[in-house]
Design a binder for these strands. Structure first.
Lengths: 115, 115
DNA sequence: TTCGAAAGTTCACGATATTGGAACTATTGA
DNA sequence: TCAATAGTTCCAATATCGTGAACTTTCGAA
């Protein structure tokens, strides 16, 4: 069946794209953080770093899954979060070192004012 | 004529609204700065503070006036810039003290990485 | 092995933001 | 009084955001 083939292709396409450290931009980082939900997601990640699923890092329990996924994609593409698949869920870690390399002190200064 | 009356009303409506210091939000500030043009506008204002017209602070010379006006409105409503009319133009000043009160060290840290 | 639940993703669509052209307003200077 | 300057508002085109619906992948249980 053609359908099976299409599924296979889609499977291969589901790979997360993360920008290289030098491609992380200031406007991109600020844009990604310019949202109360994403600010809290990043704050949660910072406090409990190492491993966190998408739903664990969610700012509120009643948020739609698609919305959460959308926010994580924005954080990924801005270079703030690195996502890898692990079992049924995803593992998200904050790219603290990369951001520190690009913009020393920025992330901590911003997250200082969250909550 | 009714037309004259309408003009009069519009004239009275052209007043700039600036948020109070305590109403400046983190997401609002980041959102206002999450744009390359606005970042450069604010950077220009910081470097030559005190008095700057809209077109003086423009990031590039070929930008449309309406676009520039739009960006200044966003900066005003986020609490980053205070605008007053002076003569034929406008005087824009960065609200450094107010932002420093709300989020100490934030603005300088961000603008450090512009350019 | 097959079924179902869990965790996310993609798609589609309405809502909001960005950009710039055109018309308008207010002030200044000739 | 008239033209130039500096900006604003209004409008339309395009791009991006937020969410429900459908879908995919993985894992555990029967």
């Amino acid at each position: 069946m053609n359908y099976v083939k299409r599924q296979r292709i889609l499977t291969l396409m589901v790979q997360f794209v993360h920008p290289a450290t030098e491609d992380i931009t200031l406007a991109g980082v600020l844009s990604a953080l310019a949202d109360p939900m994403r600010l809290r997601i990043v704050s949660n990640l910072l406090q409990k770093n190492g491993c966190m699923s998408c739903s664990e890092a969610a700012p509120c329990p009643d948020i739609a899954k698609s919305t959460l996924s959308h926010h994580f994609r924005i954080l990924r593409e801005a270079g703030l979060v690195r996502t890898s698949k692990i079992g049924v869920g995803h593992r998200n870690i904050l790219r603290t070192d990369d951001i520190e390399t690009r913009f020393p002190g920025l992330l901590n200064r911003i997250l200082e004012f969250v909550d």
